[in-house]
């Protein structure tokens, strides 16, 4: 068995989620105008989608009612995004905000 084949078998053993980056491309097209805006993300889960659009936003308040998901999202947050994302375990009904948002993203949550 040559090295290339051995390497491809190692790759095959991993789960691959959206390797075509279709979701990121759709977000770039539909949420491109999030650039520089204050964004509320509803149903952020473990922060998978948050990390896709947060780099272009000015600030992101990401909420999900699942405390475990929020802890996972906080733990997995890249250092360069920490200053602009606030994760909170809450529901949209219980959310208290001081000022309105310029944009809202519902991430697989409606």
């Amino acid at each position: 068995m040559d090295d290339d084949l051995r390497e491809s078998e190692v790759v095959m053993k991993k789960l691959r989620i959206d390797p075509e980056n279709s979701e990121a491309a759709a977000l770039a097209e539909f949420a491109g105008n999030f650039k520089g805006k204050r964004v509320l993300e509803v149903g952020c889960g473990n922060g998978r989608v948050t990390k896709l659009f947060a780099p272009m936003a000015a600030f992101v308040h990401a909420i999900d009612p699942d405390q475990q998901d929020i802890l996972a999202a906080q733990a997995d947050l890249p250092p360069q995004l920490r200053h602009k994302i606030r994760f909170e375990a809450t529901s949209i009904e219980a959310l208290a905000v001081e000022s309105p948002f310029e944009a809202v993203l519902m991430s697989w949550s409606l």
């Binding site: 805006k37 949209i92 009904e93 309105p100 948002f101 310029e102 944009a103 809202v104 519902m106 409606l110």
Partner: peptide, 20 residues
């Protein structure tokens, strides 16, 4: 109801992107 709440949390002419 969730969409009504979101409407109240958005600035006028604010943007909602929904993925489902």
């Amino acid at each position: 109801h969730a969409l009504e709440i979101i409407h109240s949390l958005l600035e006028p002419a604010g943007i909602l992107v929904d993925i489902h």
